[in-house]
Structure formats: C-alpha cells, structure tokens
Design a protein around this nucleic acid. Sequence first.
DNA 1: AACCAAGTCAACCGCGTCGAA
DNA 2: TTTCGACGCGGTTGACTTGGT
Length: 360
Amino acid sequence: MGRSPCCEKVGLKKGPWTPEEDQKLLAYIEEHGHGSWRALPANAGLQRCGKSCRLRWTNYLRPDIKRGKFSVQEEQTIIQLHALLGNRWSAIAAHLPKRTDNEIKNYWNTHLRKRLAKMGIDPVTHKPKTDTLFSGDGQTKHAANLSHMAQWESARLEAEARLVRQSKLRSSNTFHDPSPELRVVPSSSCFQGVWNGRLPAASGDGAMSMAGIGGADLDSPTSTLSYSENQRSQIGDNNSTAFIGNSSVSCDNIETSMSLTSELAMPVDSSWATPEKLRPNSDNGDFIQTFTDLLLGNSATATGGHQSFTEGCGESDSGGRGGGGGGGSENGSEYLEDNKNYWNSILNLVNSSPIDFTIF
DNA sequence: AACCAAGTCAACCGCGTCGAA
DNA sequence: TTTCGACGCGGTTGACTTGGT
C-alpha cells in the first residue's frame, strides 16, 4: 500500500529556500529551461526534489510575477471568478496576469473569505447567509438558473484548463527560443475572448489561436495554439445541457464559441478586466448584469430596484448576530462604514463591468 | 520585556489527470 | 487497453511576523 514518493526523499532538502538555491535554480532555468522537473535538481546541483523546484519557480522566481498588495480590481476579479469557479485557483490565476494560484489562494483564505464572512456573505456560495433575498419565486428560479450556470461554467473551465496547460507546456519549451515569431500564450485569452463577448465569423476547422498575454509589461512570448481534435471531442462528447435563464445551451455551443474566438484573441494585460475591456453586448448585458448581481447577492437588477448590496449585508450582518441596536464601538462603526464603502466600490466595479458570455 | 494569540504566506503533501510506452 | 511516470492542482501545514496584554 501507499504511494511511492514523488522522488527520492533521502538527502533532499526541505523547507525554505536559500538565496543560493534560488540563484542556482534561476541560473539553470535561464540557461536551459526547466525541461523535466524531475531531472532538473540533479542537473542544477540542487538537493531538492523536482516538485519543490517547480513550485519555487512558479510561485516565486518566475520573472513575470507581480508581488505585493492586490488592487481593488484584482480583488473584484477574484471575487467574481470565485463565485463562478469556486476554488479553482489555477483557473482564476489564469485571468489575473502575474499572480500565482498559490498567492490568490492565500489571499482569498486570509483576506477575502474572512471579509465576506464578516459581512454575512457565505464565501462558498457568495450569497447572504440569510437566504431572504432568494425567498421569492423569481429569486429561487434565478438561483436555480445560477446553479445550472455554474455547471456549464464548470464544463467550460475544463476545456480552458486544457488549453492553459498546453500553452504552459509550449511556454516552457520555448523559453529560450530566440525566434520572436514562435511565441507562447501563457494564459487563456481565448476564454477571455469569450467573456469579452465579441464573436467573429466562425472558423472552419475549430483551430484556435490565442494572442499573447502580457502586452507591454509582460515579456512572455506568445504563440499559436491548435485546438486539438481530442480536446474538441472531450467537450463535444459532453451532451449535457446547461439551462441559463429561459434558454438552454448545449455544449456544442461551448465548442463553437471557443473555436470562434480564434480571431478575436486580444492581448491580455494587467488591466484586461477594466470596464472598457469588458464591454457588454447590448443583448447580453442585462442578463450578465443580472447574473453578476445574483452571484453577488445583489437583488437590485433582478428586482428592478437599486439597493446597495452592502447595505443589505450590513443589515443581515447585524441581524444575524442578534445585535438589535447595531452595536459596536465608534471605531467599530467607522470600520464598518469603511468596509461598506470599500465593498460598495468593488461591487460598483463589478456591476459596471459585467462579464459577458458570447454563447447566448 | 515576556508571553500569547492571531494573521500571513511559503512550502509541502496527496491525489487526479495526462500522455507515452 | 493497460501501466506508469511526470506534472499540476488544491488543501493543509508550519515557520515567521505582528499586535495585544
């Protein structure tokens, strides 16, 4: 019984990396690329297992990593994507250039999750813990639709993950490639294209190319990917149907929409999620707005009124604690006020930059 | 100054998936 | 079709830092 260890553990160093080790790893990868992670430590003269080297590289040493405080926009993106994708950190990280999945995961667990919980929002479902907002028939229906949305999204995610994996593979293979025309896409801008909601004419063979991520400040090379028959069949074979709103969308459409993005792939840079770049289609905008609101528990769009979500949460929060009088010290209320403003700003951003789905 | 609790984050572990043989 | 090695992902751990008493 038991699984064989990923590598020979005897004599291998564990724990924090020293600057010397970092230097060795960095120098080796810069000169040779990482190639086989398993073989890398021996070649680079490191007493580490390949897994540890890969982790150190991807989470810390990679040159295209941004460290430091998350911007409001990044937070907004994380919340949105987490509502859609759940704990799929690598998929979320694919939409946050220069951030690693580990970093996003940590940030979620240490900051965002707690903040949401504090506001009375279930960080898993992204709905207010008191389910009153969803008590009406219409809301229940929306919630049910949302669930189907999530399933559909999950299916799409699988396809995207494969693409990301492929692109990463190519990225590693061409790390030293001096040829500027052989470029690699480190992320799934195709997916983003779908989100951005502009569909070009259909491409015949389903081949999909993706423009490079990074733009000016990201030196990762870009490349062209082929959307393999295998991948297509994996999506196409899934005949499940997701019901979204009043319409149903089969996975064939997913395949179509993904293949259709070949011509619209746009550069991804750190500002890809800005409202300007997330312009909705006029037809889809309302739905996406509603969807985003539902995800975030904001009933304003769905009900036609406009109510600050955080205000609602504030009420539910204090109510949930049985506070009665709103309680708290002055500092506490100041904090709550700040918090409210902060989250309102995030949610306003969310609401002003609805994610768009082109399949509808 | 010392202690403790809470927060943060780099790193590890185990499992699932993929592709090659 | 099966097996196996390699990789990547997500959950968890533990060392370190910070803030409060």
